[in-house]
């Protein structure tokens, strides 16, 4: 295993085998290829205001973690390369002082990167995401998740939510269980899997679930919030561009989890007003669904 040596430096050198070269190449390439591949832009197209902050947070961590990943792998490869060429060790132990200093330096570095990132970049965004208080201009929407659809509820022109009661619930005809007798219900809009929002106005989406836990994920908006039965968390965000953006469920909710897909349509301000005006209220066409009819089905 070890060659006899008289202490001369040249004697302690050893020829490296193919295997050493391969292992060095493995770790070096893992670092280099990943860093090169990872320097692309991976995020879905950004479409919300606070999303810039989330992207900034992600990019900061990507840069720091990517840097450490690359350096770590190259150092590992370098130590293996050097070590494979030795037939005796070069130095044995560092002093306790050196060991402590290195650990202290690491502690400072990780504090700056990890805690610094969280506190300086992350928390303001977190506060913006959760803390933005009521905004008179905001568009309020309620989303009730169920296996396996998103029921979307707008209060309509009166700004009042119709009463929702389980007794009126009917999967086909009244998926929200909206009370047909409540005057506030009369102008309410109910849609399935489609949300319409105006651009550059705060959206306040209140989440409900009827059965199991679902999660409301808008990849482009950098929005994700679980819809937990018995709770009604609200997410708030500013869409910054018009277009159609996908909605996905990100909490395992049963066998149809993967097809719980929805769409957020972000419209220009005028377009949105036009859509609001044109969209038929849920109980608007009383001829289509008579109140009594709904009630009967609800009780069934």
């Amino acid at each position: 295993m070890s060659s006899e040596s008289d202490g001369g430096q040249s004697v302690s050198k050893k020829k490296r085998g193919v295997e050493a070269e391969a292992v060095v190449a493995l770790f070096a390439l893992a670092g280099l290829v990943t860093a090169a591949y990872g320097s692309q832009d991976f995020f879905p197209e950004l479409a919300s205001r606070h999303g810039e902050g989330i992207d900034a947070m992600l990019n900061f961590v990507l840069a720091c973690a990517g840097g450490m990943f690359l350096v770590g792998h190259l150092v590992l490869a370098w130590f293996i390369w050097k070590g494979a060429g030795r037939s005796r060790i070069e130095h044995r132990m560092a002093t306790h002082t050196t060991e402590r200093r290195i650990s202290l330096a690491l502690a400072v570095m990780m504090t700056l990167i990890a805690e610094g990132g969280v506190l300086m970049i992350g928390m303001p965004v977190w506060a913006e995401y959760y803390g933005s208080d009521g905004n008179a201009q905001a568009v309020a929407v309620r989303v009730t998740a169920q296996q396996f659809a998103w029921n979307i509820h707008y209060p309509g022109a009166d700004g009042k939510w119709g009463r929702v009661d389980l007794q009126f619930l009917d999967d086909a005809e009244n998926p929200l269980g909206l009370d047909p007798d409540d005057p506030a219900s009369a102008d309410d809009l109910v849609l399935v899997n489609n949300i319409y929002l105006p651009v550059e106005r705060m959206a306040r989406v209140k989440l409900f679930s009827r059965d199991v836990i679902h999660s409301f994920f808008l990849p482009n908006m950098r929005v994700k919030q679980d819809a937990v039965p018995g709770m009604s968390p609200e997410v708030r965000f500013f869409p910054t561009r018009t277009g159609d953006f996908e909605l996905a469920c990100t909490e395992l909710c049963g066998m149809g989890h993967y097809r719980m897909q929805g769409m957020v349509h972000v419209l220009g301000a005028e377009e949105f007003e036009k859509w609001l005006a044109d969209e038929e209220p849920f109980f608007g066409a009383a001829a289509v669904i008579g109140k009594a009819d709904v009630q009967k089905k609800g009780n069934a």
Partner: peptide, 11 residues
């Protein structure tokens, strides 16, 4: 570092 960071974890 990504997932322990609440803000990055939203996405």
């Amino acid at each position: 570092l990504f997932l322990g960071n609440a803000t990055a974890d939203i996405q």
